[in-house]
């Protein structure tokens, strides 16, 4: 029981971090960024390359992952989202293609086989019969710190309030002097950095492999659809629903089914409450 609780909390913190970058873009730009998982992929491999292949300090590796994700996000906004302004189907198709393209690029550069990331912090603690790797604990705590900082940022800074404003009323934001283009750029860069850092943690949780963008994308989509919202608190709540659902499934039903119930949950919510549990898309 305690074991399930601890594992659930650790996994959910990570899921919240995975989802928050996706919901940011969904709220501020009203774009379903189906290439979101590619940030995690790029982040994981950037960390692998800089921290493990080149042997840079681990913190620098995480930083490089964040920078790569940020740049990828900015490029995506400038080269795909802005030119396709408002054409949602075209944006979704192109972002999906971009993800597949990045997967091929990763295979080309790093090969097809999966890679093991060395733990960010080595060591394991046994709690109530559960082995808790320090890495996972660190990932969960780091996720929480990042989410809290983000929550503070969005509420207490001019740029953060501008992000909320653009998500709630574009004209109201414009006549307040907010430049939506700049806010969107900022949000895409931030989303990319968050996704890439989440990718480092996610890869150290599981493993690093070229198809690593699909599972996180499903988690992120699940959180958006189940929550129906872009609020950071809502993301946290729903990430815990999804995270605990997975842990409970693998503990009491079968580990192989853990992801299946997340997808079932998406379908149930889509049919039962299309606007999500909270029925709000604004930040």
């Amino acid at each position: 029981m305690l074991q399930v609780l601890i594992q659930g909390l650790l996994l959910s913190g990570l899921y919240a971090l995975i989802a928050v970058g996706f919901t940011l873009i969904f709220s501020v730009g009203r774009v379903l960024n189906l290439a979101y998982g590619a940030y995690l992929l790029i982040g994981g491999y950037a960390y692998f390359y800089f921290a493990q292949t080149l042997g840079m300090p681990k913190f620098a590796g995480v930083l490089m992952a964040g920078i790569f994700g940020c740049v990828l996000g900015l490029l995506k906004f400038q080269l795909i989202v802005k030119p396709l302004k408002g054409n949602h189907v075209a944006i979704e198709i192109s972002t999906l293609i971009l993800a597949v393209f990045l997967q091929s690029t990763v295979i080309f550069v790093f090969g097809d086989s999966s890679k093991i990331l060395l733990p960010i912090i080595p060591g394991v603690e046994r709690v109530a019969g559960a082995a808790i790797p320090f890495s996972n604990l660190f990932a969960a705590i780091a996720s929480w710190i990042i989410l809290l900082s983000l929550w503070w940022f969005v509420r207490s800074t001019h740029m953060g309030r501008a992000m909320q404003a653009v998500s709630m009323d574009a004209k109201g934001a414009a006549i307040s002097g907010v430049d939506a283009n700049r806010v969107n750029m900022f949000t895409w860069g931030l989303s990319g950095a968050l996704g890439a850092i989440a990718g480092v943690f996610f890869a150290s949780y599981t493993q690093l492999y070229p198809g690593m963008w699909v599972a996180p994308l499903i988690i992120a989509v699940a959180v958006v659809i189940v929550g129906g919202i872009g609020s950071i608190i809502g993301t946290l709540i729903v990430a815990h629903i999804v995270g605990f659902l997975e842990i409970l499934t693998s503990a009491y039903i079968a580990p192989e089914l853990r992801g299946v119930f997340t997808m079932l949950l998406i379908i149930v919510i889509l049919v039962w409450r299309p606007s999500g549990l909270f029925g709000r898309e604004e930040l």
Partner: peptide, 18 residues
């Protein structure tokens, strides 16, 4: 064109953006 889920004060603060 207010920001419905923001407080009165935060709506005013957005107005101070420039």
């Amino acid at each position: 064109n207010l920001f419905p889920y923001m407080t009165v004060r935060d709506n005013l603060m957005v107005g101070a953006y420039t």
